[in-house]
Design a protein around this nucleic acid. Structure first.
Lengths: 220, 220
DNA sequence: TAGATTGTTAATCGATTAACAATC
DNA sequence: TAGATTGTTAATCGATTAACAATC
């Protein structure tokens, strides 16, 4: 599906935005939309939206625009949401639990099969119905189960070794929340979520915003 | 500090990476580094690094490179980390707690003063020493305390109204974790953390990776 | 000093926007 | 059909890379 050859990263990163917005349009009962309307709603130009979509195919219709449900379905396919994914989460501290609680992941086909944690108090318990196994049983688990996405929510010092075990065990992609750089073989897609980076960008904007000039250092 | 006029977003988003890397170099005892070495280590060209840094000033020295500690200090200033920020977190579910547990935010000057939650069981308790107040006391709290950054970790349906209260109460920037689009006045910097987007990008990459062609649909 | 490496300008590359013929 | 809006090519804009003189 999809003429995928070398789509640029900036385009790929806009796809989830398109997808989310189409989902919400569909929920509101909107059945068709033009690139101009869509652009206005999500803050992009109509040109850019048409360009982006046309990297993958001609899903619109001249004189009409796009069928919301149809375009959404195409995007789901392009994003790989038309298949199911098996996920495991290693480390069920707060971030691990936050992910577990995201119902929308489940709805989009991302199924968490198992949880792993070093804390013995959690072993044998279930969180949201999913069993928590000892972290040192991860390797054995992977030898018996096919896992698509491994989510790393361990403390930073265990992140790399966890990634190594995941990759050796055949996990096909890594989603890393540990605040440390992790290296994996180049064919394994990996996404890092650096919360700190997001906060520092916000800090930059705050420090350089108009308002920033006015208030004094500390007013507490 | 800093010739800040209209630095492009892509440059700004690289600053935290530079900063984090310099921190780690400093910890390892590295005192000087050239743009070529730095580029190799973080995967950018030497040219790009020099360009990025020079938007803010000439912090290097010909024939020598950059002094790690000095450049880090400059970047801290540029990012606004040389001042302290007062933060509050609204909603202390898993994401709220995860943020609370990020020691590194505290170390960089982001101080969480207060927590708010709708759950009565939490009222009057403390998490990591920080008191949890009822969500409906947020407005009163803001009338008495100056807050720089408001972190929204509420369920999606309360996110916009929380943002409205924060902005009306004088909060200067918003960090939003609720999976919904929030609107605030244009002068208020806002950063959205969309975990779903990150997962969908990973899904895209997995669906279009080399390996993806080989395995069958479901092998479980 | 000679060697190294920055700061900065110029050249290239890629992404966005504009324009318009095709067509529903 | 006439009007609307896509798909797509061309023009513009911006970001990255290359090059090199300045200088430590």
């Amino acid at each position: 599906m999809a003429a995928n050859n070398r789509i640029s990263e900036v385009v790929i990163r806009r796809l989830p935005l398109y997808y989310r917005h189409l989902e919400s349009l569909e929920k509101s009962g909107v059945t068709r939309i033009s690139s101009a309307e869509l652009g206005e709603q999500i803050g992009l130009t109509a040109s850019q939206i048409r360009q982006d979509i046309n990297f993958f195919g001609a899903f619109g219709q001249q004189g009409y625009g796009y069928n919301v449900r149809e375009l959404k379905t195409h995007l789901a396919g392009i994003l790989g949401l038309d298949r199911g994914y098996h996920m495991i989460v290693v480390g069920v501290g707060n971030i691990g639990r936050a992910i577990l609680n995201y119902q929308s992941f489940y709805d989009r086909g991302f199924r968490i099969q198992a949880l792993f944690d070093a804390n013995p108090a959690l072993h044998g318990t279930r969180l949201r119905g999913i069993p928590v196994a000892p972290a040192d049983t991860l390797e054995a688990y992977l030898s018996k189960h096919a896992v698509d996405i491994g989510v790393i929510c361990t403390p930073r010092e265990f992140a790399q070794q966890t990634a190594d075990i995941l990759v050796a065990g055949g996990v096909r992609a890594i989603w890393n929340f540990a605040p440390v750089q992790i290296s994996v073989p180049p064919q394994i897609p990996i996404n890092h979520v650096h919360l700190t980076d997001s906060l520092l960008v916000l800090s930059y904007k705050l420090a350089h915003s108009e308002q920033a000039a006015l208030p004094s250092e500390e007013d507490f």
